[in-house]
Design a protein around this nucleic acid. Structure first.
Lengths: 156, 156
DNA sequence: GAGCCTCTGAGCAGATTGTCCAGCTGATAC
DNA sequence: GTATCAGCTGGACAATCTGCTCAGAGGCTC
């Protein structure tokens, strides 16, 4: 679960140039190929690396509008609401948070007008008492992990 | 910018088994290798596929606590606050949203107690007027894109 | 019909992968 | 001090995949 400096460098390298192979990585890091392979296997079975799926940009797919909605859930309806939201493709992410029956979800839509349709679909469900939505204007820090990896690797 | 059915299948396949190569993909999809290569190149230059970076799990790195903080920013201090937050490794993501000088950021921490340290560091900056934090308890829908890809591919 | 784009199926040299192995090192246990 | 162990190194091998090229076929628009 703890990662050392070499793991950190490996992750950073992998994040910067994901297409390079094990052999090229071993050259860049100055270690043997077997070492890189062993480290990668360990990081994956550790769960540190969850996968290498493609990072798809919703905007390029035609969904340039992002919003966060805070939902207030009626007591005991949590499971139903979760199941409902999981069926909506525009719900990219859903969290339950502290507070009385609150959820936070990330939405995308084709336009501001389309966002209304998405929100109607999201909140058009019995267990949801109230929803408040914040539309994203800018994204100064896109989802990132490298700084955290570097910190975790430094502390080793 | 619009993706067709084959693009959709390609993305789904890539998301499910990211380590398979171009040749294996062409076999699974029943098309020629050159087609897969051309589609992949196009998706990448389109920006639909942003990259193939490793998906790192903060929890496995020792940061099991996630929280969302809504920040109220003093007028005109936005740029400074952005720069400040970008230097905090525990800030994984930052958005500016509708509303008067509001920002939303995703934080991680080593523990609930550690979250206090992170929040102090985040809000210990002049331009931030107020902050309210919601701690994530569950994550019923982890960040996903496949359902949206399938919808976009079906509409073609 | 001409022109254009995409897909197909094939070929080639070169590089990479998965998988072994023996030897070395540093740390830990006895 | 010495035995044991895990991790790293550097090397080898066959099998596979990649990047690149090509000619031909189909479908589309003008």
């Amino acid at each position: 679960m703890a990662i050392d400096h070499l793991d950190g460098r490996l992750l950073v390298l992998l994040a910067e140039e994901p297409r390079i192979g094990v052999l090229e990585m071993s050259r860049r890091l100055g270690v043997a190929r077997g070492t890189v392979q062993a480290r990668l296997d360990r990081l994956q079975s550790n769960g540190v690396i969850r996968g290498f799926g493609p990072q798809v940009d919703p905007a390029a797919l035609g969904y340039p509008v992002t919003a966060f909605a805070t939902l207030q859930i009626r007591q005991g309806q949590g499971a139903d609401v979760r199941a409902h939201l999981a069926t909506v493709p525009e719900v990219l992410e859903l969290h339950t948070t502290t507070g009385s029956g609150d959820m936070l979800c990330r939405l995308v839509a084709r336009s501001n007008a389309d966002l209304q349709r998405v929100i109607d679909r999201v909140v058009g469900f019995d267990g949801i008492v109230r929803a408040s939505t914040a539309i994203v204007m800018e994204n100064p820090v896109p989802l990132r992990i490298i700084p955290l990896v570097e910190q975790a690797a430094t502390e080793h």
